[in-house]
């Protein structure tokens, strides 16, 4: 039996926009296929063991709460997280979690808050909140052949990608990374970053399955592919939003 361990980083601090839905989607989609799943929380003052987990999830939080955990992140977990990223552990980092993986966040008052620096991107506080439904297209997504991902974004930080990091997709409707260059999210090794929060994975089962597949392939070299599920409810939810926001 395949076994997958999910680590939810700072679930008590970064849990803003229905992040629970993403964990729930990973868990259920593995359980429905008979894969053994366990979810572990790692928060302030608790060590992160890079060898122990196959998928790491970091969600979004209020700025207020991000402050508290920056200290913990840099002083207690930095090396272990680097190790996991370079070791091709699967990461899903959303909104605040996405920003924290980068080099720094420059606040409205001009203060530069040092972040993890596992990926070469950075975030600059904007004066406008980028809020609304988000549709973006990702290349090569099995099971979602149209390649469209639907979600909701709510951030004032504008994120820019440096060398070595590729965007996750192209914005079809909404703002994306910064509302300027038309890109959304970031990818590096098996790290997926996006501003699309909340029920990202339940509504985009193709992306959920891609993360699960990557995790299984990394851990079990003989693993081939996931058995398909009946995703008609999920697909209806996704298609209805694509129709509403892109007239396609």
């Amino acid at each position: 039996m395949y076994q997958i361990s999910i680590c939810h980083l700072y679930p008590d601090l970064l849990n803003l926009y229905g992040d629970h839905g993403n964990i729930q989607a990973l868990r259920k989609r593995m359980e429905w296929r008979g894969i053994d799943v366990s979810v572990h929380s790692v928060s302030l003052g608790e060590p992160f063991d890079p060898e122990a987990h196959d998928i790491v999830f970091i969600g979004g939080g209020q700025d207020y709460e991000q402050d508290i955990l920056l200290n913990d992140l840099l002083n207690q977990k930095k090396e272990a997280l680097f190790h996991a990223v370079e070791g091709e552990t699967v990461f899903l980092c959303i909104c605040g979690g996405y920003q924290l993986m980068g080099r720094y966040i420059k606040t409205g008052s001009g203060r530069e808050m040092e972040c993890l620096g596992a990926l070469n991107h950075w975030t600059i506080s904007g004066d406008k909140r980028l809020i609304g439904n988000l549709v973006f297209s990702v290349e090569g997504l099995k099971q979602q052949p149209d390649g469209y991902i639907v979600g909701f974004e709510n951030h004032s930080g504008k994120t820019y990608l440096g060398e070595g990091v590729t965007p996750l997709g192209k914005v079809v409707h909404g703002f994306g990374n910064n509302g300027e260059d038309g890109y959304e999210g970031a990818r590096y090794k098996n790290v997926y970053c996006t501003y699309s929060h909340g029920s990202l994975l339940p509504k985009n089962p193709g992306l959920a399955d891609e993360l699960i597949t990557l995790a299984l392939k990394r851990k079990y070299p003989d693993f081939v592919s996931l058995q398909p599920l009946n995703d008609s409810l999920e697909t209806n939810a996704r298609i209805s939003l694509i129709k509403r926001f892109t007239r396609k």
Binding site: N15, Y17, G18, G21, I131, N133, F152, N154, G198
Partner: peptide, 9 residues
């Protein structure tokens, strides 16, 4: 509220 992701909370 235009963001319904709270349904997951």
């Amino acid at each position: 509220g235009t963001d319904i992701s709270w349904l997951w909370d």
